[in-house]
C-alpha cells in the first residue's frame, strides 16, 4: 500500500497514539501468548500509559488492557494510524 508509513516498535510510540500491528519479531511461547492476547498482525493497538516508574506500558487491544515491558513491546511493530504524533 503506502510506502511512506514506516513501522515503529510499540515501545517507541507515544501515549495516546494508535497503531496497526504490522509485525511481531518474537518467537516461541511469548509469541503465542501475545497472539492470544490480541497482538495479531492487522489488529489495532492504542498506547494508554506508562507505569509511574516508566515501564511497563499499558496497551489497549481487543477491548482489553494489557501491560508489556519494553523488552516485549520493542519487538512488536506497528504503523501509526492516529492519536499523538511521534
Amino acid at each position: 500500500m503506502t510506502a511512506t508509513v514506516i513501522p515503529i516498535p510499540l515501545s517507541e510510540a507515544l501515549n495516546g497514539s494508535r497503531l496497526r500491528i504490522s509485525g511481531i519479531e518474537v518467537q516461541g511461547v511469548l509469541r503465542r501468548r501475545l497472539l492470544d492476547l490480541g497482538f495479531v498482525v492487522g489488529n489495532a493497538v492504542e498506547v494508554l500509559r506508562r507505569s509511574p516508574l516508566g515501564d511497563p506500558t499499558a496497551f489497549r487491544v481487543s477491548n482489553t488492557t494489557i501491560a508489556l515491558r519494553r523488552e516485549e513491546s520493542s519487538l512488536i511493530y506497528g504503523e501509526l494510524i492516529g492519536g499523538a504524533e511521534t
Binding site: V26, V29, L30, R33, L34, L37, P56, A58, T64, T65, I66, A67, L68, R69, E71, E72
Partner: peptide, 11 residues
Amino acid sequence: VPTHYTLELPP
C-alpha cells in the same frame, strides 16, 4: 534473564 511479561489490567 527475565522472561517475558504480560499483565492484564482488568476493568
